[in-house]
Design a protein around this nucleic acid. Structure first.
Length: 451
RNA sequence: GUGGAUGUAGCUCAGCUGGUAGAGCCCCGGAUUGUGACUCCGGUGGUCGCAGGUUCAAAACCUGUCAUCCACCCCA
């Protein structure tokens, strides 16, 4: 294939069958957002580069698509929805009802190397609440995620939570210097991948001692704990005992309270028994870090338990970020779903799904000769007026065999055949392509039957 | 940005130590002029990712480049 007929690196074309599935996934998420009371907004795909790069961290900054417009303004494509939301909120704060609960679904762009599940252009579906410091927000977002993911049939997944405040405390208690915090966190985040020796190596490369690693791991050694609540209370005792600095101590305790509250809320909402509120699905993991620089409190990540495709939804609290854009400081927290990754998982779990999706078009109308054409069009209009999506044959020389084959390939469930006999009776032959059954009925009856 | 693998028909792939391309599926037509999944017959389709180089001769060897995949990095 020549270069010019390929879509640019990291982007792809979507075939009609893929679009049907995508549409279904996006619509399901959208419906859930609405069910939880979020309102939709939109904002530009590009913003001033300087705005996008604020507080996102240098690693992320490298991934922003940058360009200059003809007046030499430096612009960038949005790489996620949080910075644009900060700007949007600051711009429109006076017009918005607070707490501001909004959702947005759209394309975002990241200049990075492609891989399975990693694209340069992809969809995110994002729900955020600005204007509350309460943990009820986190609970609501997690509950929403569970609701949506179950509806999507995502099966086995887990929600991993942690809190930046706790991390800060453990880092301090482990004797790691504040200036080396980021490097330490980045290394720790990789524990599952590179193992203990790998983390120690990275620590040393950044001038952090092995003993610091040991103390960190000793503090978070919670293997004997029975559940999340138990883990948190053990950790709390340890941190209070080990932290000298009063402000760190207080923050860490606060962080633990926050997570306890989230877990508690989950239990309350689900009647205290639902598996989603327990360690099975919500899992406190002190090694969860997340890269984005603006998180200030609880952070969470959702990933499949049986497929390793990275997380497909994630979020966290970013209090006071809006202040960066000139608004009054406000509590804020959000969650983001990676649409492509969700679709990848659905397709891996159900390999035949693309073949099995049926067309949104309900019925295909074929007439046999020019004589029946007016009646066929009239029939189409009646069906459409009744809310039935109907396609009519456009060939000037219809061949019934070919037309049925066409309808079958397009996964249309029914065919209406209109020939001399049907036209005379003001009816049609309704054929179900799956069962191959045929009945002779009127257009109105057809609308009733296949609705 | 770094390292590795791959790139042949719409799809999945074959093509030996260099001798100028093949299968299956799909698609199209017919057997079957008011009926699609099966069967049979016939047919279309490839500047071998692209550009150079070596050679009498390159899909094959060399170099570069682009894309995909994998691992880093980071992340949805």
């Amino acid at each position: 294939m020549s270069k010019l007929v390929q879509p640019p690196k990291g982007t792809k074309d979507f075939l009609p069958e893929e679009m049907i599935l995508r549409r279904r996934v996006i619509e399901t998420i959208r419906e859930c957002f609405v069910l939880y009371g979020f309102v939709e907004i939109d904002s530009p795909v590009f913003e001033y580069f300087e705005l996008l790069s604020r507080k996102c961290g240098s690693e992320v900054e490298k991934e922003i698509y940058v360009f200059e417009d003809k007046a030499k303004r430096k612009l960038g494509l949005r790489f996620e929805f949080t910075s644009p939301l900060g700007r949007y909120y600051a711009t429109n704060a006076e017009k918005l009802t607070k707490p501001f609960k909004r959702y947005i679904i759209g394309k975002v762009y990241r200049y990075e190397n492609t891989q399975a599940g990693r694209y340069r252009e992809f969809y995110q579906a994002d729900a955020d609440i600005i204007g509350s410091y309460s943990m009820n927000v986190e609970s609501e977002l997690i509950d929403l995620a569970v609701f949506a993911l179950d509806k999507l049939g995502m099966g086995n997944y887990e929600i991993i939570i942690n809190n930046r405040k706790i991390l800060d405390g453990i880092i301090n208690a482990a004797g790691i210097d504040e200036s080396k915090k980021d490097a330490a966190l980045r290394a720790l985040d990789k524990t599952a991948k590179i193992g203990e020796s790998g983390v120690i190596k990275e620590f040393q490369e950044n001038g952090i001692g092995e003993e610091n690693y040991r103390s960190f791991m000793r503090i978070i050694d919670l293997d004997h704990a029975t559940d999340n609540a138990n883990k948190l209370s053990i950790l709390k005792e340890r941190l209070i005992a080990e932290l000298k600095d009063e402000s760190f101590k207080q923050k860490a305790a606060e962080g633990i309270e926050e997570l306890s509250s989230i877990i508690q809320n989950g239990k309350a909402v689900n009647g205290g028994t639902d598996a989603h509120s327990d360690a099975d699905v919500i899992k406190f993991d002190p090694l969860l870090v997340r890269g984005l620089g603006y998180y200030t409190g609880p952070i969470f990540e959702i990933k499949s338990k049986d497929l390793s495709i990275g997380s497909f939804a994630a979020g966290g609290r970013y209090d006071n970020l809006v202040e960066l854009y000139g608004a009054r400081p406000e509590g804020a927290c959000g969650i983001s779903f990676g649409v492509e990754r969700i679709i990848d998982i659905i397709m891996q779990k159900n390999t035949g799904i693309l073949q099995s999706v049926s067309s949104p078009v309900k019925i295909y109308i074929v007439y046999l000769t020019e004589k029946e054409k007016p009646y066929a069009y009239k029939t189409a209009k009646i069906l459409r007026s009744n809310g039935i999506s109907a396609e009519i044959c456009v060939s000037s020389e219809p061949n019934i065999g070919k037309e049925i084959k066409y309808a079958d390939r397009k996964k249309i469930e029914y065919v209406a055949i209109i020939g001399e006999r049907e036209a005379a009776e003001q009816k049609l032959t309704l054929k179900n392509l799956k069962t191959r059954e045929e009945t002779v009925v009127s257009a109105e009856e057809t609308a009733e039957v296949i609705k």
